[in-house]
């Protein structure tokens, strides 16, 4: 049942997936198992996006269905069995840049894939990234920027993290439609990604290894 439920969800069959979730709950299925099925489905959605079968509206729609399912599943959960988040990710558009469309999509995808996302917003100064790492102990930091100016801000931010002695405790990925290997090296980041799913797989790699 869980397997076919996950398939139905990753095929984005909204009504059927909701009905199946409801049915499973009524027959006494552990809510956690249902949510695990959702996670499997979201993995599959991500893979389809990477293969070019799915597009951004598909991703957003999958998130909507997930929210609807969570809304019926969560009330059935005992408090202690709160669904465990995979880990924390800090994200923000770096100083002197204000583009947030890509950042918001990445935030959304991380969220529905089970991460706790600390979104610092746009035009975020280096200190704010440093403070957030200290406060949350997050192991993954995502920096977004579209402007050429942003690459200098990324470099500056990573230098500030280094100067605070926090560089070894975090893995840093930069994103934005123009980023490449050269820019990654220039900024001192650990990875770069030009679409949301790359950020998700990077965070998974870091936090689940």
């Amino acid at each position: 049942m869980i397997k076919s439920f996950a398939k139905t969800l990753s095929d984005l069959k909204e009504k059927e997936a909701l009905e199946m979730a409801q049915e499973m709950l009524e027959s006494g299925k552990d809510p956690l198992e249902i949510l695990n099925g959702c996670r499997t489905a979201m993995d599959e959605v991500g893979k389809k996006f990477e293969k070019g079968e799915y597009f951004i509206p598909d991703l957003i729609f999958s998130g909507e269905i997930l929210k609807e399912i969570s809304a019926i599943v969560k009330p059935k959960m005992v408090e202690e069995t709160e669904f465990e988040k995979i880990g924390k990710v800090i994200i923000g558009t770096v100083e002197d840049d204000i583009h947030d469309i890509g950042k918001n999509i990445v935030t959304f995808m991380l969220d529905i894939n089970g991460f706790e996302v600390i979104d610092l917003g746009i035009d975020v100064p280096p200190e704010k990234f440093v403070d957030a790492i200290k406060e949350t102990n997050a192991k993954v930091v995502g920096m977004c920027g579209l402007l050429t100016l942003a690459y200098d801000s990324m470099k500056k931010t990573i230098e500030a993290i280094d100067a605070s002695g926090l560089r070894d405790q975090v893995k840093i990925i930069i994103g934005g439609s123009q980023v490449n290997e050269e820019i990654k090296n220039y900024t001192g980041a650990d990875a770069y990604g030009s679409d949301a799913m790359l950020a998700v797989s990077f965070a998974k790699e870091v936090l689940q290894s």
């Binding site: 951004i56 509206p57 469309i101 918001n104 999509i105």
Partner: peptide
């Protein structure tokens, strides 16, 4: 105009 993909 902003991308339709992001918001209908």
């Amino acid at each position: 105009v902003l991308p339709l993909a992001v918001s209908n």
